[in-house]
Every structure is written in C-alpha cells, then in structure tokens.
Design a protein around this nucleic acid. Structure first.
Lengths: 217, 217, 217, 217
DNA sequence: CATGAATGAGCTTTCATTCAT
DNA sequence: TATGAATGAAAGCTCATTCAT
C-alpha cells in the first residue's frame, strides 16, 4: 500500500514510471531545435515529432497545441536561465568592474555554446507576436537582471565609481553589447562569428573605470 | 497629377504612362505594413493586395512571388536609408562626442517615427531565414556604418580622445544601445515605450569623455 | 457608364458573369447528396468537392466552413419548400377532407421523388445537434404549416365537421403519418419502401368524416 | 453485492467473479449516455471510458470496436424493451379504444422519462447508416408491434368497431403520433416540450369511435 | 495591364485503436 | 483483467499561385 520504490514488475499498471519525463524532454529539445531553425510559423509539428522520435499525436499528449509547445519550450529554457542568474552580489568592497568581470562575463561567454543565445534570439524574433512569451521573458529574465544592474549602478554612483547615472536610468545599456553580438551571430554568425564574451569584455574595460588603488593618497 | 491624355502619336492604348510606378509604390508600401505587422510567414498576399488597392493577381505582375516581394520591399527601404546615411565626417577638430551628438543622435531620434525602426526589427527577425536580406542589409547599412565608426574611433584614439581601442575592435558597440532600445520597443513598446534617442544620448555622455578644453593656447 | 447588360467580351474583368451561380448550385447539390448519404459528421468536404467537380478550396470560397455549407444546403432546400407550401386556402364551402385531399396529398405524394423527403430526414437526424438548423426549419416549415392546420381545424370544428378538437390542440397529428412514412423509408425504404401518399390518403379517409350531402334534409 | 472472496478451491486469482458483468453494464450505460448526447460519429471512446470509470483500453476488452459497442448498447436496450412489450391482448369483449387506452397509453406516457424515447431517436438518427441496428430494431420492436396492431385492427373491423381498414393496411398509423411527438421533443423539447402521452391520448379519442353502449340486452 | 475564381499542396489537430506493462 | 502512452490515418481548413477573361 505504501508507495514502494518502483519494485521491478510490481504494481504500477500501464507504461513505465519516468519514461514520460524522458519523452517530454525529448519533445522539448526537438522543438527548441526546430523553432530555432525555422521560427514559430514555419516550424512543422511533424518535424518536431520526427526529431523527438515520437509520432505526431504524441506531441499533443504533452502540449495542447503548437503555441503551447512553443511557450513550453521557452519556459523550460528560462528555468535554466534562472539558475544561471543566481542572485550573487559583489563581495564587500569589490568594485563594479571586478564584479561584472567575475559574474557577468562568464554568463555571456557561454551564451552561444549553451542554447541560451538561441533562446534570446527566439524571444527577440517571435516575442513581438507572442505577447505572453515576451511578458514571461521579461518577468523571468529582463526585470530581475535590469533590477540588479540598477542597484549595482546606484551603489557604484554613490561610491563615486561611476560618474554617470546612465546605467541607473537605462540598465539595459549594460546588456546591449551582449545582445547585439548575439543578434549579429544570428544573422552573420555562419560566415563571420563574433565572440560575444570578447565583445562584452572589451565593453566593460572601456566603460568601467579601473578602480584607483583604493588608498586615498 | 492630371490624367494626361495618351501622348498623341504614341498610339499606346492600355499601358499607362507612369501609372505602373504608382502601383508598384502602393504595393511596396502596403507590403511593408503587412510584413511589419505579421512577419514574413504570417503575412498574407491578399492583405497586401487589399491594402494596396489592387487585386491579388496584380501583385504577381510586379513580383515573382512572396519572397521576391519581401526582398523587394526591404531593398526599397534600404535605398532610402542610403540617403539618410549621408557620408558626413566630423568638422576639422570636432571631437568625437560632439560629432556623434550632432550626426548620430538625430538618426536614432527619428528611428521609431520613421519606418526605419520597423525595418531593423524586420531584418533582425527574418534575416536569419533570408540570408539574401541579411546580406543586403549588411552591405547597405551595417558595413558602411561600422566602417565609419571604426575610422572615427581610430582617429579619436590617435588624438588621445579615446583611451580604449574597444570601438576600433568592435564598432557595433556604438550601435548596441540604439539597437537594444529598438528591440525593446518591438517587444514591450506597447506598454512601456523606450525613448531610443534618450538611451543613445545617455550612452554617449557616459562613455565618451568630455573633451578637456583642449587648451587653446 | 450605365450598367449595360453583359455585352459579350465588353467590360467585366475577371471570370464569367454567372458562372459563380452555377458553381454554387453544383456545390449545394453535391453537398445535399453527401449529407444525405453520410450525415453531417461523416460527410467529407473532399467528397462534396469531387462530386461538385471543384477543388476543395473552392468550397470555402462559397461557405465559410462545413457547418455553413450544411446550413446553406438546408436553407436552399427550404426555399423550395416555401414555394410548395403556397398559402392556399380552401375554396368557399369546401370541406376539410376535400381540401386536404386536393392540397396536402400532392405535397406528400412528391415527397420522396423531390429531395424534400431527404431534407426532412436530414433535419430529423441532425437537427438535435444543430439547433440553428432545427430552429430555421421550424420557422420556415413547421410553424407555418401547423398554424394553417390549426386554423383549418378550428373552422372545421366550428362548422361541425370535426367533433374532436385534437387537431386544434396538436396540429402535428395531421403531419404525423407523412413524417412516419418518411422515416420508415429512411430506415427500411431500400428493402420495403412505403408509399407515403397512400399512407396519408388512407389516414385522411379514415379520420376525416365524409361530408354529409350538404343539404340539411 | 458483497465482495465475495474467491471461491475456495477455484484458485483463480485476478479474474473476479461477477465484477466483469458490472463493468460491462457500466460501459453500456455510459455509452448510451454518450451516444444519445452526440450521435455515433461524434461520440468519443474516451468519454465513454471516463463516464464508465474505466480506462480506454478496457472498452476494447468488452467490445471489438466502436461500432460493436454501439450495436451492443442498442441491443441491450432492446432486450429491455422486449419485456416492456408484454404480449397482452384485449380482455374478452374489450373495445379497441379501451384496450389501447389501457395498454398503449402508459407505454407512451413513460417514453421520455425512460430512456426509450432516446433509443427511438437514436435508431431514427443513426439507423440509416447502421442497417444492422435498424434491422434489429425492426425485428425486436417494429414488427411485433405492427403485427399486434394489425391483428387488433382486423378484429375491430370484423366487429364493426372500425369502419376503415386504414390501420389494417398501415398499422404504423397508430404509432405515428407518438413517434412524431418523440421527434419533436428531440428537436424542440428543450424550449417547448411536448407531452407525448397527451398527444397520443388526444389522437386515440379523436380517431377511435366511442363504442356505442353495445346494447347489453 | 488587371482581375478574382479556382486550385491543391500542406499544415494542424483529432481520435479510434494497440500493446507493453 | 486493466491501464494509458503512443500511434498514425484522416479530415478540416488556409493561402500562395495560376489563368481565363
């Protein structure tokens, strides 16, 4: 009667215990591929199914329709992002530049290798026609990140590290280089890929002052 | 403007004089609207035709197919852009910051009001699946602009106005804030529009040093 | 400028003038066949199209969807019925029995040969799940007919021709034999067809009194 | 009713004693509901299963396919009917009118409350496409009833109670009012229900002569 | 040049049926 | 016996494209 760990062959009528989880993951992964390659409208359910190794109908056991599949894929990817955006703060006394090099740079570096760059491009290209998707992305990614940037910038201004309040007013300025490089790679990455990490690093080094040897002298 | 009688002696009956040019312009304008609203795949030829005030079949007298219409529209818009990107250089002795405020800022300011913001978003969203479009945009817009930025940056570095070579290595850093704001407006502009000009201005003021009163002595 | 009768080859751009009317009729006729044979759910649009000699898509130029086609077919058939139910009243002094033999009998006689029997069966079998269809049939056919019957019955009662008010209370009693025979033919007509006219005639002769030689003596 | 322990000595483990009979009844009852609500084609097996409280696959342990389930349901209902159509004859000397009021009227009165009205409508609406169903209904219901009516009518004619042979030639005339009212209720019963018993009663009173006080002398 | 009825490939979605557990 | 995840044939509907007028 007690829920025993799936003893082989014991109770559990019907299909296997966690096979469905595997199937779902396969569908989501396949769908991400297809949506990235063709965009929402041009993606064909049959291609998703084939790539996931399931039949067409199976998709509809997991997602009500194509739109739900699309949003499901994005939501799944965003969940990953949330982990990557762990709420680390700067170490005490750590200057902004050092902190961003330590925290933001690695996030941008892995962007293309992980599928996150693709996710961003997907949101950018399809978000206009999927308000729900855009809103979810904003809630999960944009607002937390810009909020954190604004807070950091305010502190840096207060400490005199930043002479301009530009970042306080427009936190997305800090994300702009990485986003722009990501979009470049979507358009021209095949023939002339851009190293997003290098772009962001050059940007940080350019616009954030090297902290003067902290002693006042 | 007045309906001119068929030029005597020409004997041409139906084929009007420049009516076709007007029709073509109407189609292109209508198509731009529709593509901006729905993207390439979701745009319907019948909508383009209706908005242009012609019949479906007429579209095919001007463009071989939907794809040709799409590329034709973008090419037309880019031709307009070429004019807007007049090859102005800085006045002799004009610092980078002053020059960019004078030249770049107005270009970004009118972005949303003109159709250029829409064009940019269209290239960003559809360029991945229309290599020709992306390549044309690069040839017409991206390369000239980044080339100019790089030259300006090199001179500024040489003059000691810029201490970093970031802009020389990645000229798109200068375009990133405007592009990012434009994308924001595509996603969230309806509920929270962003003033692209203000973003770019804040960026320029932040990252470009106020030239020290170059000591006129 | 004035709308000239379609002079051959004159103005009139595009397809022919009344070809569309022919196409529409072909579709409606084909659809009636298919709906009669298979019912609404089992009828396939491709079958309707094929039988009408057009392509699938053509159906949707004339009817928004399958349901609209179904209702269109019924409405078209009902229009015929309205003609058959011309509002004839009894001749002055004509007894009910004579009047009904003169007017109602022929209507029932041609039921099976015309497509009206099929229409009735269609309404009976599909009306439950198409409230609009049932309501339209009621408005166009049922209510006018029962209204007329009720009026006739009231007069007959007043004249002493009918001793019962059954027909006044339930006019459908007069239609019941014809309807029942029609349903029989839908179920068993293939192996044992029933002559609806004969059934109705036997019924009228049974239940309506032969008028006594009109002089009071 | 009580869950009997597997009969000692039988040794049968899983296969329960009469549980299968209960399951079968549940399936049939659920299927009747669903078929009545949606008709054969639009009925979904999953709905039948859910309503019966079993899994989809279980249905197929009891019925080969949807069609078999449909026919099984109707056959089951007809078996019930056979009981309700007890072969009662008129009491000696009982006039036709009195007999029909005593026997037929109650049968029609309970029609809508029992599921029999639904069964009739199901046969009427689906019988055309299920010849087996129509034939079974005819064998079980129609032929016995019309046979009885014909016999009764013949005797009534012989006794001089009926002056017309209409009922002898077309016994379904007697069933027509009840059938017509039942169909009415299928189409318009929601907004304007018709009392089938009242209709039949009015009909009987109208068309069957009150027997003259047979002169007891 | 212009029209718009007609076409049919192509796509999404449903659901009866199967079968490993 | 019972389950329900998986299957895939089928059907409705759309829309780019054609072509007779």
């Amino acid at each position: 009667m007690t829920q025993v760990a799936p003893a082989a062959g014991a109770g559990r009528r019907g299909p296997s215990p966690d096979k469905t989880a595997r199937t779902r993951r396969a569908i989501v992964a396949a769908a991400l591929d297809v949506f990235l390659e063709r965009g929402f409208s041009d993606a064909r359910m049959i291609d998703v199914a084939t790539r996931a190794g399931v039949a067409k109908g199976t998709l509809y056991l997991y997602f009500r329709d194509k739109e739900a599949l699309f949003e499901g894929v994005l939501r799944e990817m965003m969940a990953d992002l949330v982990g990557a955006l762990s709420p680390q703060g700067p170490a005490p006394g750590e200057p902004l530049r050092a902190f961003l090099r330590r925290v933001a740079l690695p996030a941008f570096r892995g962007l293309e290798e992980s599928r996150r760059a693709g996710l961003i491009r997907l949101v950018v290209t399809e978000g206009g026609r999927f308000p729900d998707v855009a809103a979810a992305y904003r809630r999960v990614v944009v607002d937390p990140v810009t909020g954190a940037i604004r807070r950091l910038a305010q502190e840096a201004v207060a400490r005199g590290e930043l002479s301009s309040d530009a970042l306080v007013r427009f936190p997305l300025l800090l994300a702009a280089p990485g986003l722009t490089a990501t979009i470049w790679n979507g358009l021209y990455g095949a023939e002339e890929p851009l190293d997003t990490g290098a772009v962001v690093e050059a940007f940080l080094d350019w616009v954030l002052p090297e902290v003067p040897p902290s002693d006042g002298r």
